[in-house]
Design a protein around this nucleic acid. Structure first.
Lengths: 172, 172
DNA sequence: TAAAGCATGTAAGAGGTTACATGATTGG
DNA sequence: CCAATCATGTAACCTCTTACATGCTTTA
């Protein structure tokens, strides 16, 4: 997960640890700690995915290697497993520009399908809960309703992204 | 976190592990695994927060103790630290009914304040990113915009909950 | 009587965090 | 020159998941 995000950022240009931390934070969904960042960098270096270039002064800037580019491409288009986190999709989306245009819609549609499935089961559980006298806690019902509304909004947003994608594709 | 959720469920009535797993899943935000659930139950038992009552057959139903009730109350009204997860708030909200009515609005307002702060900083980062030529990746901008829209919707939702809360309170 | 689902548990490990330690560089 | 921020790193630990092991109970 973290490795994936690091590779995505280092794809663009060489960066050092501290800078990566800031950049990850600015993507808005992750304030990674140094305690995971630096070990991750050494892990990636050992695997040959990135290599240190002499940075300015104390800084150790890392650049991506050809092998790293391969690893990144695989992570990017591997069909994410069932336990794919919210975050995993966000990372994919943040770096979607690195994927060939014809593959992008696939990633978006995959996410959409997952959200739809989730929404259906949430609706079932909600209807069950509402009709079950024991479960009629108003806070819990509100929580479920809000979760469903959020998921619906996420789906609509993805539909928008897909539409844009197709529009851009047909304009070329 | 898990301990907190378990206590909340066991507050209502005695439950055994398998049942807790199902109930947590039905709250909609957590599909906990047995590998964390059962150790958590033994941990809580050791601390004296819950105790096993002879369940049917193989089942080991746990009920809350007085000490467990104290621990739960503390967790419920302790001002959540900075790294409070989404999930921590969801748990608090799911069990908000266990909190005295006059404390409930505090929890909601606390969450609202956190979301507001987060939104402000997200907006700053977004404006920065948009004006920075290097960062104008359209997927990343879309991600940020959607995150902001979601946060705004969360805030509006909380406002609704607070309004309901005050209405209910003044009706008594 | 076999399959599906109920039920409890352990071991290994993934993937993070916090706290600590250290020191260079920059700005007021 | 002092404080803030930049910069890298380690050690201990926390929380949870996956995979495995075991066996009961219900139902077709």
């Amino acid at each position: 997960m973290l490795d994936f995000a690091i590779l995505g950022l280092v794809m663009e240009r060489a960066r050092h640890g501290y800078e990566l931390k800031r950049a990850l934070g600015e993507l808005g969904f992750w304030k990674v700690s140094f305690g995971s960042l630096y070990p991750a960098l050494r892990r990636l270096e050992k695997r040959g995915a990135i290599e240190a270039t002499g940075g300015t002064g104390r800084r150790k800037a890392y650049r991506i290697t050809d092998s790293g580019r391969d690893i990144f491409a695989t992570l990017m288009s591997t069909d994410p497993d069932a336990s794919e986190t919210e975050r995993a999709f966000q990372i994919r989306l943040a770096f979607l520009g690195h994927l060939p245009t014809d593959r992008r819609v696939q990633v978006l549609e995959g996410r959409r399908a997952k959200l739809s499935t989730h929404l259906r089961s949430a609706r079932e559980i909600f209807i069950d809960a509402r009709s079950n006298t024991e479960n009629q806690d108003r806070y819990r019902l509100a929580l479920m309703e809000h979760a469903m509304a959020t998921t619906e909004s996420d789906i609509a947003w993805i539909d928008g992204l897909v539409a844009t994608e197709r529009r851009v594709a047909s304009a070329n």
